[in-house]
Design a protein around this nucleic acid. Structure first.
Length: 115
DNA sequence: CCCTTGACTATCT
DNA sequence: GAGATAGCCAAGG
């Protein structure tokens, strides 16, 4: 699929928005769910470009740690937001990443017909 | 056009 | 389990 920032951003925003409270996905998971495998790094860009209030804190790295440097302001902010969702960090990692946090996303974005 | 950077990931030691 | 290495993809200098 030809990369279209507009399409990509929208897909990412929809995907992240669909992550239910208490759940967490990795950048790679979001990219894949949005229909752009291997675009984990682009997901971060899409989110920072986001003009709408996304639950961006529900997106972490594949190993369960936050993407920001521990102790940084952004890190603490994300940690606090996660705790508001009832997701606490255990030794710097979320208990478990829910790969199905937005499992119904394909249908939600691309329609019940899929593809 | 080449090189660097980044809110990433998988693999190997 | 932590650190190093290579792969990844687009953006910006």
């Amino acid at each position: 699929m030809r990369y279209s920032q507009k399409t990509f951003d929208r897909a990412v925003w929809e995907t992240v928005s669909a992550i239910r409270p208490g759940y967490v996905m990795s950048y790679g998971d979001v990219a894949r769910a949005a229909g752009f495998p291997r675009h984990a790094r682009m997901v971060s860009k899409a989110m920072s470009r986001s003009s709408v209030p996304l639950p961006w804190h529900r997106v972490v790295k594949s190993d369960g740690t936050l993407a920001f440097s521990p102790g940084s302001e952004a890190y603490n902010r994300q940690k606090a937001l996660l705790e508001q969702d009832g997701v606490a960090l255990h030794k710097g990692k979320v208990a478990a990443i829910r790969r199905d946090a937005a499992a119904d996303l394909d249908r939600l974005i691309w329609g019940p017909t899929g593809t």
